[in-house]
Computed example of a mutant assay.
Amino acid sequence: MNFVLVILAKLLYIAVEPINFIYVIFIKTKFSWKRLNGYFRNEAIAIDRFGNSQYRSLFNTWFVTEKGYQHGNINETISSVLGKNKRDDTLTIAGNILTKILDTIDKNHCINSINENV
């Protein structure tokens, strides 16, 4: 039954996301580039937090040494965890590669993403 619920949730997301996007950006409020940017930022953070929680076993194995700060908190982004491990020098080779990619796209992304309140 849980498998069916996961499939249904994913299909619902795929169906509803474009409708929600049009509604929020073009119908509910007057269009603005600032609002569009905010919409995408909020969406990215929500997906990022979900990934940090849902894929914790994989990410902890691939990106973090055993003594490193672990992925898994739904209130924290993947980048925050990577930033803490970069700061503490507890990233694996794959973790260092990923942080370099993110930091190339957005300078000091991982360190700037650290959330000390989590």
Results as ranks from 00 to 15, higher is better:
81 V>T: 15
41 R>Q: 14
2 N>Q: 04
75 N>Y: 13
12 L>Y: 01
29 T>R: 15
101 I>S: 05
81 V>Q: 00
50 F>C: 05
56 R>Y: 05
92 T>G: 08
41 R>W: 09
27 I>D: 01
47 I>E: 04
115 N>P: 04
8 L>Q: 11
86 K>R: 08
105 I>G: 06
45 I>H: 01
51 G>T: 06
31 F>S: 11
10 K>H: 08
8 L>W: 01
114 I>C: 09
100 K>Y: 11
39 Y>N: 10
68 G>Q: 02
57 S>Q: 10
13 Y>M: 11
75 N>G: 15
112 N>Q: 14
25 I>W: 01
43 E>H: 13
24 V>M: 11
19 I>G: 08
43 E>Y: 14
34 K>D: 15
98 L>E: 08
83 G>P: 10
10 K>Q: 14
73 N>W: 05
52 N>A: 00
92 T>N: 07
75 N>D: 13
86 K>S: 08
106 D>K: 11
18 P>Q: 02
43 E>D: 10
88 D>T: 05
66 E>W: 00
79 S>P: 05
45 I>P: 03
43 E>S: 08
64 V>T: 06
20 N>P: 00
105 I>M: 12
70 Q>D: 02
112 N>H: 10
60 N>R: 02
29 T>V: 06
94 A>R: 11
58 L>A: 13
44 A>R: 07
84 K>G: 06
73 N>P: 02
32 S>F: 02
93 I>D: 11
99 T>D: 04
12 L>W: 01
77 T>E: 04
93 I>F: 13
84 K>F: 02
7 I>K: 14
35 R>A: 11
48 D>S: 09
5 L>C: 07
112 N>W: 02
22 I>Y: 11
47 I>L: 05
50 F>T: 01
41 R>N: 13
44 A>I: 05
4 V>E: 09
25 I>Q: 13
14 I>L: 15
39 Y>G: 03
114 I>W: 04
1 M>C: 07
113 S>G: 01
88 D>S: 12
104 T>R: 11
36 L>K: 03
2 N>T: 09
99 T>H: 03
4 V>F: 12
29 T>K: 15
52 N>S: 00
91 L>W: 13
56 R>L: 01
4 V>M: 07
27 I>F: 14
18 P>V: 06
110 C>M: 04
47 I>R: 08
11 L>K: 07
6 V>T: 06
89 D>R: 14
77 T>W: 04
87 R>E: 09
11 L>T: 03
41 R>C: 02
71 H>T: 00
12 L>R: 01
95 G>P: 01
89 D>A: 11
72 G>C: 02
68 G>R: 04
14 I>Q: 10
28 K>N: 14
68 G>M: 04
112 N>L: 11
50 F>D: 01
